[in-house]
Write a protein that binds this DNA or RNA. Structure first.
Length: 428
RNA sequence: GGAGGCUUCGCCUAGUCUGGUCUAUGGCGCCGCACUGCUAAUGCGGUUUGGGUCUCAAGCCCAUCCCGGGUUCGAAUCCCGGAGCCUCCGCCA
């Protein structure tokens, strides 16, 4: 949810944000009038409740003779209070709906436009040149590392088994990612993959992308599409000590996505699947720190790409392609030789205070008190992929394939793969 | 899955039976001030959170006793539903 105070003080800024997103500007005015309506309803309900309180105090002190007269007045007033409270509840519901409909205000400098209007910030490394490259499905099959046929037999389309060196690769990547995160000061976390509706809603995944999310109807729980959800919910409803910020967590969990509406896209292999494991970075920081933290998350993502010895580019995602919660987003896209294209491997978003407002996560600043009450305000939350395992494996096999059918193993991964420098097809 | 107990403003706690200055008690912690020639002791004051109003300062007002309903002029207190925690039984990796 955006800051209503900002909206009242500077509605044009919010309108401008809607414009670069290609979103509906009239939502801003709808929110403004819903805000006015709620405040009017609050004023009226508060006034009536005040009268009611005063009157009921009189009744408590009144003599039995006075009481009868006061009671009839009080009964009438109670009806009015009830009606005013009903109006207020309605106004609050309307405000919340209007509030949720407005996405985060984009950061200055975000490229305007849609999916294809990203700006490439940096290109790193040289894409390998291989004649007639195989794709990761073929390589994975030859290595007996990826079995999508049996994945389909057991669980359906977009499921897979990682076997042998494929399973080892997952563990190697997770270990490498967790080791790097811990060295950078992240608290390692194994997070639940099932969450309650209010947490899923608070992180913004039940809005426009609700169809992407698996729901367990019998238990009213949702399967997370990323551990961002659990890591954001971790401090929901809490007031953090500002002195303890930044708080950084590296969460490992399975991720589940229905991939509704992506039929026919990446149907081969494990680039786009219903389930995969992921190591996700998540930071809670003061709002003034959020831009710098975003750069740090990007730097840690790049560090990981460098360890995997991949050629990649960093893109500044255009406003229209940002999620609801994000004020800015950087993606890292690595080179897939078999596709002759850069494909997204990681993504980092600065959600500023938008997500924290929804989840009611605040910080108390006790540093500059001088007898004054401590300042309390929402924190900024940021997230970034460190390693989305399945897609990263797909990229590694594709990117590091050799002419002889073997796959080069990046130096950083070798300690977890028995020191192997190449992966060789069985029997080849 | 079955039975019982518990949930109060950071933590602990009084209050719930018997509805009305509960405008929520006390302790700890924390903040400020005073005093003693030092951050210890003592004394005094302050200390939930959100919202409304406003010369966005003080003040005033409203809400908030796990959550949601209900009864009532009036609910921390009574009734119904739900959540979480604990104990025991059952089941289970």
């Amino acid at each position: 949810m955006i800051d209503l105070k900002l909206l009242r003080d500077d509605p044009d800024r919010v309108r401008a944000s809607q414009r670069v997103r290609g979103a509906d500007e009239s939502l801003v005015d709808a929110l403004l009038s819903a805000d006015d309506a709620r405040r009017a309803a609050v004023a009226r309900a508060d006034r009536l409740r005040g009268e009611q309180k005063a009157l009921s105090r009189e009744i408590a002190k009144a003599t039995p003779e006075q009481r009868t007269a006061l009671l009839s007045r009080a009964k009438h007033l109670a009806d009015e209070v009830k009606a005013a409270e009903a109006d207020l509840a309605e106004a609050e519901t309307a405000l919340r709906a209007a509030h949720l409909a407005v996405p985060n205000v984009v950061e200055d400098g975000v490229p305007p436009g849609g999916e294809d209007d990203f700006v490439t910030l940096q290109t790193v490394g040289k894409p390998p040149t291989i004649d007639a490259p195989l794709d990761h499905t073929e390589i994975g099959a030859a290595l007996h590392a990826i079995d999508t046929e049996r994945g389909a037999k057991v669980s359906g389309a977009r499921f897979y088994f990682l076997t042998g060196v494929g399973a080892q690769l997952e563990l190697a990547l997770v270990n490498l990612a967790m080791e790097q995160a811990q060295a950078a000061g992240f608290v390692p976390v194994i997070a639940p993959a099932l969450v309650k509706p209010e947490i899923m809603e608070g992180t913004g995944f039940l809005g426009a992308h609700a169809a992407e999310v698996y729901r367990l109807a019998d238990d009213d729980l949702y399967l997370v599409g990323t551990s961002e959800v659990a890591l954001a919910g971790y401090h929901a409803g809490e007031i953090l000590d500002a002195g303890s910020l930044p708080l950084r967590y590296a969460g490992f969990s399975s991720c589940f996505r229905r991939e509704a509406g992506s039929y026919g896209k990446d149907t081969r292999g494990i680039i786009r699947v219903h389930w995969f494991d992921k190591v996700e970075m998540f930071s809670y920081v003061q709002i003034e720190e959020s831009r710098d933290e975003h750069q740090r998350l990007l730097a840690w993502e790049r560090e990981f790409m460098d360890k995997l010895e991949l050629a990649y580019r960093v893109i500044d995602v255009a406003a229209g392609d940002l999620g609801t919660s994000a004020a800015r987003k950087f993606d890292i896209e690595a080179w897939f030789p078999s596709q002759g294209a850069y494909r997204e491997l990681t993504s980092t978003s600065n959600c500023t205070t938008y997500q924290a407002r929804r989840l009611n996560i605040r910080a108390r600043d006790t540093s500059s008190r001088d007898g004054k009450p401590a300042a309390i305000g929402p924190v900024a939350t940021l997230n970034g992929t460190l390693c989305a395992v399945a897609r990263t494996i797909a990229c590694l096999l594709d990117h590091h394939q050799q002419a002889d059918g073997s796959v080069y193993v990046p130096v950083a991964l070798r300690p977890w793969l028995g020191g192997r420098e190449v992966l060789t097809p069985a029997g080849g």
